[in-house]
Protein backbone atom coordinates (compact mmCIF):
# COMPACT_ATOMS: atom_id res chain seq x y z
CA UNK A 1 0.00 0.00 0.00
CA UNK A 2 2.82 2.42 0.83
CA UNK A 3 3.94 2.63 -2.77
CA UNK A 4 0.65 3.92 -4.13
CA UNK A 5 -0.85 5.89 -1.31
CA UNK A 6 -2.61 8.23 -3.71
CA UNK A 7 -4.49 5.77 -5.90
CA UNK A 8 -7.32 4.88 -3.53
CA UNK A 9 -7.94 8.41 -2.21
CA UNK A 10 -8.05 9.71 -5.79
CA UNK A 11 -10.58 7.09 -6.86
CA UNK A 12 -12.56 7.81 -3.71
CA UNK A 13 -12.64 11.53 -4.48
CA UNK A 14 -13.77 10.81 -8.05
CA UNK A 15 -16.49 8.55 -6.73
CA UNK A 16 -17.80 11.18 -4.35
CA UNK A 17 -17.74 13.76 -7.15
CA UNK A 18 -19.90 11.43 -9.23
CA UNK A 19 -22.32 10.96 -6.32
CA UNK A 20 -22.65 14.63 -5.44
CA UNK A 21 -22.25 16.45 -8.74
CA UNK A 22 -25.93 16.15 -9.78
CA UNK A 23 -27.09 17.36 -6.38
CA UNK A 24 -24.77 20.38 -6.47
CA UNK A 25 -25.87 21.23 -10.01
CA UNK A 26 -29.50 20.93 -8.98
CA UNK A 27 -29.07 23.29 -6.04
CA UNK A 28 -27.15 25.88 -8.06
CA UNK A 29 -29.63 25.91 -10.92
CA UNK A 30 -32.61 26.21 -8.60
CA UNK A 31 -31.44 29.79 -8.06
CA UNK A 32 -31.03 30.47 -11.77
CA UNK A 33 -33.25 33.28 -13.02
CA UNK A 34 -33.29 31.84 -16.54
CA UNK A 35 -35.57 28.98 -17.48
CA UNK A 36 -32.87 27.45 -19.69
CA UNK A 37 -30.42 25.06 -18.10
CA UNK A 38 -27.36 26.33 -19.91
CA UNK A 39 -27.99 30.03 -19.60
CA UNK A 40 -27.16 31.64 -16.29
CA UNK A 41 -29.60 34.50 -15.87
CA UNK A 42 -28.46 35.72 -12.48
CA UNK A 43 -29.50 34.74 -8.98
CA UNK A 44 -33.20 34.55 -8.32
CA UNK A 45 -35.57 32.86 -5.94
CA UNK A 46 -38.53 33.12 -8.28
CA UNK A 47 -38.82 29.34 -8.77
CA UNK A 48 -39.29 28.94 -5.03
CA UNK A 49 -42.05 31.55 -5.11
CA UNK A 50 -43.67 29.78 -8.05
CA UNK A 51 -43.41 26.45 -6.27
CA UNK A 52 -45.02 27.89 -3.14
CA UNK A 53 -48.00 28.98 -5.22
CA UNK A 54 -48.36 25.78 -7.20
CA UNK A 55 -51.44 24.21 -5.65
CA UNK A 56 -50.79 20.92 -7.46
CA UNK A 57 -47.47 20.38 -5.66
CA UNK A 58 -48.76 21.70 -2.34
CA UNK A 59 -51.69 19.27 -2.30
CA UNK A 60 -49.50 16.40 -3.44
CA UNK A 61 -46.89 17.25 -0.81
CA UNK A 62 -49.45 17.33 2.01
CA UNK A 63 -50.89 13.99 0.87
CA UNK A 64 -47.43 12.42 0.66
CA UNK A 65 -46.60 13.64 4.14
CA UNK A 66 -49.73 12.01 5.58
CA UNK A 67 -49.10 8.78 3.66
CA UNK A 68 -45.46 8.70 4.77
CA UNK A 69 -46.17 9.31 8.47
CA UNK A 70 -48.94 6.69 8.55
CA UNK A 71 -47.09 3.99 6.62
CA UNK A 72 -43.77 4.60 8.42
CA UNK A 73 -45.50 4.21 11.79
CA UNK A 74 -47.26 1.03 10.70
CA UNK A 75 -44.04 -0.34 9.21
CA UNK A 76 -42.20 0.46 12.45
CA UNK A 77 -44.60 -1.69 14.48
CA UNK A 78 -44.72 -4.60 12.03
CA UNK A 79 -41.00 -4.46 11.22
CA UNK A 80 -39.98 -4.35 14.89
CA UNK A 81 -42.19 -7.34 15.72
CA UNK A 82 -40.65 -9.23 12.80
CA UNK A 83 -37.14 -8.35 14.00
CA UNK A 84 -37.95 -9.51 17.56
CA UNK A 85 -39.31 -12.78 16.18
CA UNK A 86 -36.22 -13.38 14.03
CA UNK A 87 -33.65 -12.50 16.69
CA UNK A 88 -35.30 -13.85 19.82
CA UNK A 89 -37.53 -16.75 18.93
CA UNK A 90 -34.94 -19.27 17.85
CA UNK A 91 -36.17 -21.94 15.51
CA UNK A 92 -39.87 -21.86 14.96
CA UNK A 93 -42.07 -23.44 12.38
CA UNK A 94 -42.06 -21.41 9.20
CA UNK A 95 -38.89 -19.51 10.10
CA UNK A 96 -37.31 -20.07 6.70
CA UNK A 97 -40.43 -18.81 4.90
CA UNK A 98 -40.81 -15.91 7.31
CA UNK A 99 -37.18 -14.89 6.94
CA UNK A 100 -37.44 -15.01 3.13
CA UNK A 101 -40.69 -13.01 3.16
CA UNK A 102 -39.10 -10.36 5.36
CA UNK A 103 -36.04 -9.92 3.14
CA UNK A 104 -37.52 -10.23 -0.34
CA UNK A 105 -39.18 -6.79 -0.61
CA UNK A 106 -35.70 -5.23 -0.21
CA UNK A 107 -34.67 -6.22 -3.73
CA UNK A 108 -37.93 -7.10 -5.47
CA UNK A 109 -38.37 -4.93 -8.59
CA UNK A 110 -40.93 -2.28 -7.82
CA UNK A 111 -43.00 -2.89 -10.95
CA UNK A 112 -43.65 -6.45 -9.80
CA UNK A 113 -44.60 -5.36 -6.27
CA UNK A 114 -46.83 -2.60 -7.60
CA UNK A 115 -48.67 -4.85 -10.03
CA UNK A 116 -49.01 -7.67 -7.49
CA UNK A 117 -50.43 -5.34 -4.84
CA UNK A 118 -52.85 -3.70 -7.24
CA UNK A 119 -54.21 -7.05 -8.43
CA UNK A 120 -54.58 -8.07 -4.78
CA UNK A 121 -56.52 -4.93 -3.90
CA UNK A 122 -58.82 -5.50 -6.88
CA UNK A 123 -59.35 -9.15 -5.92
CA UNK A 124 -59.99 -8.18 -2.28
CA UNK A 125 -62.53 -5.58 -3.32
CA UNK A 126 -64.33 -8.06 -5.55
CA UNK A 127 -64.44 -10.72 -2.86
CA UNK A 128 -64.94 -8.76 0.36
CA UNK A 129 -65.82 -5.27 -0.83
CA UNK A 130 -62.73 -3.94 0.96
CA UNK A 131 -60.73 -1.78 0.30
CA UNK A 132 -63.35 0.16 -1.62
CA UNK A 133 -61.56 1.70 -4.58
CA UNK A 134 -57.95 2.79 -4.67
CA UNK A 135 -56.53 5.79 -2.88
CA UNK A 136 -55.00 6.78 0.44
CA UNK A 137 -55.57 3.42 2.14
CA UNK A 138 -54.15 1.26 -0.66
CA UNK A 139 -51.09 3.49 -1.02
CA UNK A 140 -50.49 3.31 2.74
CA UNK A 141 -50.79 -0.52 2.75
CA UNK A 142 -48.39 -0.78 -0.20
CA UNK A 143 -45.82 1.56 1.34
CA UNK A 144 -46.05 -0.23 4.69
CA UNK A 145 -45.29 -3.54 2.98
CA UNK A 146 -42.36 -1.98 1.15
CA UNK A 147 -40.89 -0.29 4.23
CA UNK A 148 -41.38 -3.09 6.78
CA UNK A 149 -38.41 -4.97 5.36
CA UNK A 150 -36.11 -1.98 5.86
CA UNK A 151 -37.28 -1.42 9.44
CA UNK A 152 -36.66 -5.10 10.17
CA UNK A 153 -33.09 -4.94 8.82
CA UNK A 154 -32.23 -1.91 10.96
CA UNK A 155 -33.90 -3.09 14.18
CA UNK A 156 -32.74 -6.67 13.73
CA UNK A 157 -29.04 -5.83 13.63
CA UNK A 158 -29.39 -3.60 16.69
CA UNK A 159 -31.26 -6.32 18.61
CA UNK A 160 -28.66 -8.91 17.68
CA UNK A 161 -25.79 -6.72 18.91
CA UNK A 162 -27.56 -5.67 22.08
CA UNK A 163 -26.24 -6.71 25.46
CA UNK A 164 -28.85 -9.02 26.94
CA UNK A 165 -27.64 -8.89 30.55
CA UNK A 166 -29.94 -6.03 31.60
CA UNK A 167 -32.98 -7.83 30.22
CA UNK A 168 -31.93 -11.04 31.91
CA UNK A 169 -31.41 -9.28 35.23
CA UNK A 170 -34.88 -7.77 35.08
CA UNK A 171 -36.41 -11.12 34.18
CA UNK A 172 -34.57 -12.81 37.03
CA UNK A 173 -35.93 -10.16 39.39
CA UNK A 174 -39.38 -11.22 38.32
CA UNK A 175 -40.40 -8.56 35.81
CA UNK A 176 -42.86 -9.73 33.19
CA UNK A 177 -41.50 -10.07 29.64
CA UNK A 178 -43.79 -7.37 28.24
CA UNK A 179 -42.66 -4.94 30.93
CA UNK A 180 -39.00 -5.80 30.31
CA UNK A 181 -39.51 -5.15 26.63
CA UNK A 182 -41.16 -1.78 27.26
CA UNK A 183 -38.86 -0.54 30.04
CA UNK A 184 -35.49 -1.97 29.01
CA UNK A 185 -35.41 -3.27 25.45
CA UNK A 186 -37.27 -0.42 23.74
CA UNK A 187 -35.11 2.39 25.18
CA UNK A 188 -31.97 0.41 24.29
CA UNK A 189 -33.01 -0.01 20.66
CA UNK A 190 -34.54 3.49 20.40
CA UNK A 191 -31.89 4.84 17.98
CA UNK A 192 -32.56 1.92 15.64
CA UNK A 193 -36.29 2.51 15.92
CA UNK A 194 -35.84 6.18 15.04
CA UNK A 195 -33.55 5.26 12.14
CA UNK A 196 -35.96 2.62 10.89
CA UNK A 197 -38.90 5.01 11.04
CA UNK A 198 -37.00 7.69 9.15
CA UNK A 199 -35.92 5.18 6.52
CA UNK A 200 -39.51 4.01 6.08
CA UNK A 201 -40.67 7.62 5.89
CA UNK A 202 -38.06 8.39 3.22
CA UNK A 203 -39.01 5.34 1.16
CA UNK A 204 -42.66 6.27 1.26
CA UNK A 205 -42.27 9.93 0.43
CA UNK A 206 -39.93 9.02 -2.45
CA UNK A 207 -41.82 6.11 -3.99
CA UNK A 208 -43.23 6.60 -7.46
CA UNK A 209 -43.53 3.18 -9.12
CA UNK A 210 -45.55 1.25 -6.54
CA UNK A 211 -47.70 4.32 -5.84
CA UNK A 212 -48.54 4.70 -9.52
CA UNK A 213 -49.91 1.17 -9.60
CA UNK A 214 -51.98 1.24 -6.43
CA UNK A 215 -53.24 4.81 -6.38
CA UNK A 216 -56.63 5.90 -7.63
CA UNK A 217 -58.08 9.00 -9.23
CA UNK A 218 -57.63 12.08 -7.06
CA UNK A 219 -54.83 10.58 -4.99
CA UNK A 220 -51.68 12.12 -6.47
CA UNK A 221 -48.65 11.81 -4.24
CA UNK A 222 -45.73 14.21 -4.55
CA UNK A 223 -43.47 11.80 -6.49
CA UNK A 224 -46.28 11.05 -8.94
CA UNK A 225 -46.80 14.78 -9.50
CA UNK A 226 -43.05 15.32 -9.90
CA UNK A 227 -42.71 12.35 -12.24
CA UNK A 228 -45.47 13.46 -14.57
CA UNK A 229 -44.07 16.99 -14.67
CA UNK A 230 -40.47 15.81 -15.18
CA UNK A 231 -41.43 13.52 -18.06
CA UNK A 232 -42.31 16.65 -20.00
CA UNK A 233 -38.79 18.02 -19.57
CA UNK A 234 -36.50 19.91 -17.24
CA UNK A 235 -38.31 22.48 -15.13
CA UNK A 236 -36.74 24.96 -12.70
CA UNK A 237 -39.58 24.50 -10.24
CA UNK A 238 -38.49 20.88 -9.71
CA UNK A 239 -34.95 22.16 -9.10
CA UNK A 240 -36.33 24.31 -6.29
CA UNK A 241 -38.31 21.39 -4.87
CA UNK A 242 -35.24 19.14 -5.01
CA UNK A 243 -33.17 21.76 -3.22
CA UNK A 244 -35.76 22.01 -0.46
CA UNK A 245 -35.65 18.21 -0.02
CA UNK A 246 -31.84 18.22 0.10
CA UNK A 247 -31.94 21.02 2.68
CA UNK A 248 -34.49 19.19 4.83
CA UNK A 249 -32.44 15.98 4.73
CA UNK A 250 -29.26 17.88 5.59
CA UNK A 251 -30.92 19.52 8.61
CA UNK A 252 -32.31 16.20 9.89
CA UNK A 253 -28.99 14.36 9.44
CA UNK A 254 -27.09 17.19 11.14
CA UNK A 255 -29.52 17.23 14.06
CA UNK A 256 -29.34 13.45 14.41
CA UNK A 257 -25.52 13.46 14.38
CA UNK A 258 -25.46 16.23 16.99
CA UNK A 259 -27.91 14.33 19.16
CA UNK A 260 -25.90 11.13 18.95
CA UNK A 261 -22.64 12.94 19.68
CA UNK A 262 -24.14 14.59 22.75
CA UNK A 263 -25.48 11.25 23.93
CA UNK A 264 -22.03 9.72 23.64
CA UNK A 265 -20.47 12.51 25.67
CA UNK A 266 -22.92 12.24 28.54
Amino acid sequence: MTRRPLLLPTLLALGYTFLYLPIVVLVIYSFNASRLVTVWGGISTKWYVELAHDQRFLDAGWLSLRVAVTSASAALVIGTLAAVALVRFGRFRGRALFSALVAAPLVMPEVIMGLALLLTFVALEQTFGWPAGRGFLTVVIAHTTLATAYVTVVVRSRLAQMDRSLEEAALDLGARPLKVFAVITLPLIAPALAGGWLLAFTLSIDDVVVSQFVTGPGTTTLPIAVFSSVRLGVSPEINALGTLIVAAVAVIILAATRLLARKKES
Binding site: P22, V25, L26, D206, V226, F227, V230, V234, G242, I245
Partner: peptide, 12 residues
Protein backbone atom coordinates in the same frame (compact mmCIF):
# COMPACT_ATOMS: atom_id res chain seq x y z
CA UNK B 1 -32.67 12.54 -0.81
CA UNK B 2 -35.25 11.91 -3.47
CA UNK B 3 -34.20 9.24 -5.97
CA UNK B 4 -36.57 10.70 -8.55
CA UNK B 5 -35.10 14.16 -8.28
CA UNK B 6 -31.52 12.90 -8.46
CA UNK B 7 -32.33 11.01 -11.67
CA UNK B 8 -34.04 14.13 -12.95
CA UNK B 9 -30.89 16.15 -12.21
CA UNK B 10 -29.04 13.95 -14.71
CA UNK B 11 -31.50 15.00 -17.42
CA UNK B 12 -30.27 18.57 -17.08
Amino acid sequence: TSFLIRVYAWMG
